[in-house]
Design a protein around this nucleic acid. Structure first.
Lengths: 188, 188
DNA sequence: AAAAACTTTTGTCATTTGGCAAATAGTGAT
DNA sequence: ATCACTATTTGCCAAATGACAAAAGTTTTT
């Protein structure tokens, strides 16, 4: 729980009373490897802070291949942005790559916090914006790099992720086949 | 100017008095093809609404190649997100791809509007978030597609952009060389 | 109009990556 | 330990893309 509070405090000030309120609004939720945080048909739990574990956001492309859009790891928020923005039900789903411990804010809790804590919306906006900017900045250069460089950069940015993620997930994130990724690994 | 107001109204309500205030805070600015909207050294004009023309956001990668991160065209906001977020001076710059007419909000004007119009921050946040989500959703699938598909999708999404953009800019956006793009064009 | 500067196309060949299928390794259940 | 299941590696060849250089086409300047 402390990680969550510290994370929030990076984006705005909160007094002790507000912190206590936030703690009361959070539900701890466990996910086993392979289980879904959000999927078509279930009511989406809108926002989760990952205390432990790795999630991935993925979808099926027009060729029917399963694509991993990105990974989210410890001490970050995972938001189903599409449902967050009240859009049409997303074709994306969020799956646990490893066993996870999540701190989940239900929709009503978010509304309560938004109504009670004056800084709340500002903090959430900053977090959302930073997360999105980071994603754009990560994705954009990848297009201009070859597969080996993309893999090496991934290793550098997430040194402790690569060995906890199945090869196929990582390959689809990097935009290559798993055989290619396997060969790239060998050549290093 | 009407395009700007209509755009803002998509994201929140504004009364006539507020609309007039916004109009007074905007400066019309012309850029010739090739000129820079923001570059290292100059004070960044933080936000521009493109009334006419195309901008591109670009940078030099570690190999020294100039990469076009994305294009921004008519009736969209161009924000130097990095300076917007008070980060260290960005290595990115924003350049006019064609002659442009921009509606520019100076930093102080933005602050004034934020202080005066209660809905302002909310509107700007929604615009920012939507722009970023769109970019992620556009970039992400590109990694899994081959160059021809990326080009065809670009044509589909921006039918009237491709013929106004130099081949080299578009190639670097698509993550391929200009000779490859030239060949892809021929093959269609 | 000619020259200069820049952009796009094309040629040739090397390298990267994909597709498919089989072999190997790893994991979990009984 | 064995079996079934899944994940990873490898082999082979085809297709896509890059690198480099030259040619052709455009635009701008003089």
């Amino acid at each position: 729980m402390d990680h969550l509070i510290n994370y929030l405090l990076e984006f705005g000030q909160l007094n002790q009373q507000q912190i206590d309120l936030i703690k009361r609004k959070v539900n701890v939720s466990e996910l086993k490897k392979g289980e879904y945080f959000s999927e078509a048909g279930k009511i989406p739990k809108q926002v989760a802070f990952i205390e432990e574990g790795i999630l991935r956001v993925c979808y099926y492309n027009s060729e029917g291949d399963e694509i991993t859009k990105y990974f989210v790891d410890e001490n970050n928020f995972a938001v189903d942005i599409n449902s967050f923005n009240q859009k049409i039900p997303s074709s994306e789903y969020v799956q646990a790559v490893t066993d996870c411990t999540l701190l989940v804010f239900a929709t009503e809790s978010l509304n309560d916090l938004s109504a009670t804590i004056i800084q709340w919306d500002g903090i959430i906006n900053k977090i959302t914006e930073k997360a999105l900017v980071d994603k754009v900045n990560k994705l954009s250069p990848m297009l201009a790099e070859d597969a080996t460089t993309r893999y090496l950069n991934f290793l550098e940015k997430f040194p402790n992720l690569a060995n906890r993620i199945p090869l196929s997930y990582l390959a689809s994130y990097l935009g290559i086949t798993q055989s290619s990724l396997s060969r790239i690994r060998r050549s290093i």
